[in-house]
Design a protein around this nucleic acid. Structure first.
Length: 210
DNA sequence: CGTATTTGACCTGCGC
DNA sequence: GCGCAGGTCAAATACG
């Protein structure tokens, strides 16, 4: 995955002001509900949490005004469109299949819909794509109403892993990136920590030059 | 040449 | 039923 840095990091002073290099880096976003059927992505992914180092701000989503939390706790009831035209490929995590099967069963019976839980959080960053350690393949991009930035759709490239994520920059606050995860990884982190450390080191170098 | 990205078309759900 | 918006597919293209 490429981290693109079209804009120099120096373009945002406030961005740098938000940096904290302490060992605690950031308060961990509150873990998503850790029931057996719910993703525990954030709590299981220290590298992502670490990325908060140059995020340094986890806030509620717009009108929700949920402070102190990057985890927005979205149930994403607005995620109306799951693609059911094709049968999912290889079986993924059990939880994933449970959600899928429930959805199918529900569709047959015409009952209430069961959707995969989604978890979203905001990240203040100049780059859209945060290296969370997993490999993602972009499969779509859409213009979103009332937002001048497009939303990008990514899928985990690990065979059988059906985790998806959406990335979108806010119009109101262009420095803020909203990342939404759907599903739970059924495999360990695929990449070494090199990339993340590289990013961090770059930031630290820049910070030192201020 | 294999892999990743781009992008227009298509599908689905929802509100009116 | 129709139109809109969101989500996904897949062929074309770019890239290493």
């Amino acid at each position: 995955m490429n981290i693109h840095c079209d804009e120099p990091l120096s373009s945002s002073l406030s961005f740098m002001e938000n940096l904290s290099y302490s060992s605690s880096l950031l308060p961990c976003p509150p873990s998503p509900p850790l029931s057996s059927s719910s993703p525990s992505f954030l709590s299981l992914n220290p590298r992502l949490t670490g990325l908060g180092a140059y995020n340094a701000e986890f806030k509620g989503h717009g009108d929700n005004n949920i402070e102190q939390s990057g985890y927005l706790g979205l149930d994403m009831s607005n995620s109306s469109s799951l693609d059911h035209r094709r049968v999912p490929e290889a079986p993924a995590a059990v939880d994933e299949n449970d959600a899928e099967n429930a959805l199918k069963a529900v569709k047959k019976k015409g009952g209430k819909k069961v959707r995969k839980p989604k978890y979203a959080f905001q990240t203040r960053s100049q780059v859209d794509i945060l290296d969370d350690g997993y490999r993602w393949r972009k499969y779509g991009q859409k213009a979103v109403k009332n937002n001048k930035f497009p939303r990008s759709y990514y899928r985990c490239t690990f065979h059988g892993c059906n985790v998806k994520k959406q990335v979108q920059r806010l119009t109101k606050d262009e420095g803020m990136v909203v990342t939404t995860y759907e599903g739970m990884h059924s495999h360990p982190i695929e990449k070494s920590t090199e990339n993340f450390e590289h990013i961090l080191s770059q930031l630290q170098i820049y910070g030192a030059s201020l």
